[in-house]
Write a protein that binds this DNA or RNA. Structure first.
Lengths: 220, 220
DNA sequence: ACCGGAGTTGACCTCAGTTCAACTCGGTGC
DNA sequence: GCACCGAGTTGAACTGAGGTCAACTCCGGT
């Protein structure tokens, strides 16, 4: 049955989200799932392969979760995507932690899975912005930004010292800064200019004028 | 003697920089160092503790490597610090890989060591910029930026598709963008304004005015 | 010469990951 | 009804890596 596989993946996500890879034994998994050790080897090749499967599945879910609403115009899609990303981070903090902190000492398989997911997210964002940059500076800027988002999310989950919409605005502003920085370094002639993601508006002394908006503002 | 300890740390850095944690056995280490297994347990508590020691040592070196030249004025110190950071990344790619890809998740000890090093770097940069922000938005923006720098460096080491000075400029631009974004979100009255880090100078044929101004909403 | 302790070793122990032969059991063909 | 089949499942046994420890070697101090 395939549901057993899904059940094991779900369980694995919880276990690996809570404790580190080598602190979770096969016996732990088997016991928590009420199955025998051997069955895990039937469904997955071994512990390592199981872990890879768990991480892959979580990455798949994350990428799926930020899938755009095709009705929105491109720039708003990017915003909605990031918002969905943060929602995932918030709701499934364990899964997210397993993903990002999960490195497992740089297992190439894991690294490849994560890098692939990041690439998909990057493509996603580029498409949502209506841009397409194969140029190194832009690619690197975007890659760095994604790394920054991950770091910020992990930190944010631990501290929670900023409302989510502020975090969203912060990340969007950083994205704009990163893309602008890439543009300064490699000033390719864009058919579409780097869009203005954050609309600062009149910035008074009061720190409480609303950041872009709540969850999904589509301006324009 | 203490030199043996240092020798083992150096060796560990090479080994863990090349292969993943659990692909390096105690016997491997012992054999590579021409010592017996037991001796490793004499100097360090065990494999895990050894790994923590290796990472800590590498982090210490990195933080030491970006120590500022006190003669430079603050903004230039920040630039010099980032330059030194990139130099470290380039020269000791293995050590850097061991640090960043290392055990982000593996172990709370490791996470603590790395987070401490990042904190030091962040303080470093803040001091170099002549700023001091305990406010969440700035802290988070800086933390995200550091995560971005790490991601960019790992990617850059793999691809090498940008000259180092361009990478430096890219990162500096992103920093400025991140800080500006934090400022837009939490507009505290800074005694010292966010400094202009990137001095674009005469750029090629480009159709652009240099980025910062429109990358950064609210320049005040 | 004796002592003591740091440095060092190798045999041994333990336990987690892995393998595998065998058992159940619901469906299929005859 | 019956033999068969293959997926699902199990538990015992194997293997190898991490960890322990009593003992040995130096070597400086008394």
């Amino acid at each position: 049955m395939d549901s057993r596989r899904a059940q094991l993946l779900e369980l694995g996500l919880r276990l690996f989200g809570t404790r580190a890879y080598d602190e979770v034994s096969i016996d732990d998994i088997a016991q928590a799932a009420n199955i025998s050790k051997g069955l895990l080897y039937h469904y997955f090749g071994g512990k390592r392969a199981f872990y890879v499967a768990v991480v892959s599945d979580a990455a798949r879910r994350l990428v799926a979760a930020i899938d755009p609403d095709p009705h929105l115009p491109p720039p708003a899609r990017a915003l909605a995507g990031l918002d969905a990303y943060l929602a995932f981070v918030e709701q499934r903090a364990d899964a997210y932690a397993a993903l990002v902190t999960g490195g497992l000492g740089a297992d190439p398989k894991i690294a490849a899975v994560l890098e692939r997911a990041r690439q998909q997210i990057a493509d996603h964002i580029l498409a949502d912005l209506g841009l397409r940059f194969p140029r190194p500076a832009y690619r690197l800027a975007l890659r760095a930004w994604i790394g920054g988002v991950e770091a910020a999310c992990v930190d944010w989950l631990r501290r929670r010292d900023l409302p989510r919409d502020r975090l969203l605005a912060l990340m969007l502003g950083s994205l704009q800064g990163a893309l602008a920085s890439a543009h300064a370094i490699d000033p390719v002639d864009l058919s579409v200019p780097v869009p203005r993601l954050v609309d600062p508006g009149p910035q008074g002394s009061a720190p409480d004028d609303p950041v872009p908006d709540d969850s999904v503002p589509d301006e324009r």
